[in-house]
């Protein structure tokens, strides 16, 4: 069991390292360094930067050093919580990101809860009543959910909300709470706005999980232990819920490893369409403006949070699977 935890932890650390490299590459990718961008920006606003000043800036950020030294400097600063300055906003990156990161997590988490909340019962129903009319309907809706990219779904829902109900669906807060400090009222306001974006985000994942749950459960329903439970005199619903569903739950729970990055990805695009105050719109804007420290930090933090989420779910998975708990792998 300890080996298993260490294994997952090791993989999580390697993944975080890989993400940091990718983030650094993203920061480095645009032609020229950010001092160039800085100078261009200043020049555009009328003030010129002298060559010595530029040189001093470069040395300050270590831009004259080889690339791996730069990476090391950057990652060392990141480790202390210093993510650098946002060019565009002229403020520390972490300040610019502010609440947005947490709101991204809240939306993603809500989407995953909804995904499971819907996929689990429907998956069970579809497997137990295989080839019933409802099973066919769920399967079809599932395919459609899989086929509609979630930003498109957001667009369509937004349009019809506007057209049919004259609703402006975008945003996560009502106008009065937009810039208000956090309070119980603001949290409640957010809870009211949360379900729709979370549901849009959840649809594709739900469709996938229904199919996974249905297939797993169909597999399990054929196993002898189900018949054994029936032969003991258990009512049918208890047979199904206690045994095969329990067994099918494990591969189902392990899908969070793929679901989480998928939902976080989706939240970026959906946030843009529905103008949600997550890191999504900020990331896009920073990329367009080549505000690379901001962009790199967002990619880094999103990646790290996803990895942590996956790691935690691995631990939960281990905890619920007696075979892993007792040191067997299977």
């Amino acid at each position: 069991m300890v080996t298993y935890i260490l294994q997952r932890l090791g993989l999580a650390l390697v993944t975080i390292w890989a993400i940091s490299v990718v983030s650094f590459v993203i920061i480095q990718l645009p032609p020229g360094d950010f001092v160039d961008t800085y100078i261009t920006n200043l020049a555009a606003s009328g003030s010129a930067v002298r060559a010595e000043e530029a040189q001093a800036l470069r040395e300050q950020y270590g831009l004259d050093k080889p690339i791996w030294v730069q990476y090391w400097k950057w990652i060392s600063r990141v480790a202390t919580g210093d993510f650098g300055m946002s060019m565009e906003w002229g403020r520390p990156v972490i300040e610019v990101i502010g609440d947005r990161l947490w709101l991204t997590i809240v939306i993603s988490f809500a989407a995953i809860l909804i995904t499971w909340g819907i996929a689990l019962p429907i998956g069970i129903y579809s497997a137990v009543r295989q080839y019933s009319v409802a099973d066919y309907i769920f399967t079809f809706v599932g395919f459609v959910g899989l086929a509609v990219p979630n930003f498109l779904l957001a667009l369509i829902i937004m349009y019809f909300g506007f057209k049919l109900f004259d609703l402006n669906i975008g945003g996560l807060f009502s106008a009065e709470y937009q810039i208000a400090p956090w309070s119980a009222g603001k949290v409640w306001d957010m809870m009211k706005h949360l379900p729709l974006p979370a549901m849009i985000l959840a649809l594709a994942g739900t469709a996938q999980l229904i199919r996974i749950m249905r297939a797993n459960l169909l597999d399990e329903l054929r196993r002898p232990y189900v018949t054994t439970a029936r032969a003991r005199g258990l009512p049918e619903w208890r047979v199904i819920l206690k045994y095969p569903v329990r067994a099918a739950l494990n591969p189902f729970a392990s899908t969070i490893g793929y679901l989480l990055p998928f939902v976080v990805s989706g939240s970026i695009v959906v946030s843009l369409v529905l103008s949600l105050p997550t890191v999504g719109p900020l990331l896009l804007r920073s990329l367009v403006a080549q505000d690379m420290f901001l962009a790199g930090t967002i990619v880094l933090l999103l990646g790290i949070l996803t990895v942590i989420g996956t790691f935690l779910s691995d631990l939960i998975l281990m905890w619920i699977d007696p075979r892993i708990r007792s040191g067997m792998h299977g």
């Binding site: 993989l11 993944t15 990718v22 032609p31 793929y258 990055p261 998928f262 990805s265 080549q290 996803t306």
Partner: peptide
């Protein structure tokens, strides 16, 4: 296999966005 696992645990869209934005 680990490489694949790592790639799959990273949210793809921010990554794509970062890479794509860097195209001149």
């Amino acid at each position: 296999q680990r490489m694949i696992e790592i790639l799959r645990s990273i949210p793809t869209i921010p990554l794509w966005m970062g890479l794509a934005a860097a195209l001149p």
